[in-house]
Amino acid sequence: MGSDALLWMAAALAIAGVAVLRLSWERPARSRAWNIAGWGALLAAVLAGDAAAGEWGIAATVLVIMFAAFVVLAFAAAKPARKGRATKGRAKIARTSPRTIEETAPERRSGLVTFALAGPISLAASVLLALAVRAMVLMAGGAEADGNVAVLATVPIAWPILSFALLMMSRRIRQCALVMGVAAVSAPFLLLQNGTV
């Protein structure tokens, strides 16, 4: 099959996948079969995109998936609001989000220290972790270019994950232990940066 045909197939599967999921999630009871069919179609779309044009095909297919979902959302947005649902709507908010500001911040902690830990200190720990990844790539026989790009790519992934993990922790001691632990485990690899290139 030609790459153009595969791309069209990927687009068709993407649209079909979104449509099936829309139908599946509308049902009052869960349907494992429908869910698997929907997710399966989306997975098949991505695979077809990859087979058609590699990473470019995957990117294009994902755009089609999102666009199809937006079309479905546009129909949902155009639906008239149901009358007498305000109370239920509020109840829904209460179930999925805290009712008050106090609920979102149950403990009083120094915002400045939290900011420092989740911000610059986590960033520094992430850079150390990225350099450790580079050292490991090079020690495993990887190319210098791969090691260097690993540094550039690891920081934007590691830092937000570390920051989020810290913000999910209630106790300051645990926060400090996590960020210092990452830094301490990564720091020795600094000694291997010159020796491995």
Binding site: L73, A76, G89, R90
Partner: peptide
């Protein structure tokens, strides 16, 4: 967002309120 998928197509745009 615990109901991230279940609610993925629910968009009550015309309520014009917090919901």
């Amino acid at each position: 967002h615990p109901r991230i998928f279940r609610d993925a197509f629910r968009l009550r745009a015309r309520r014009a309120d917090a919901v």
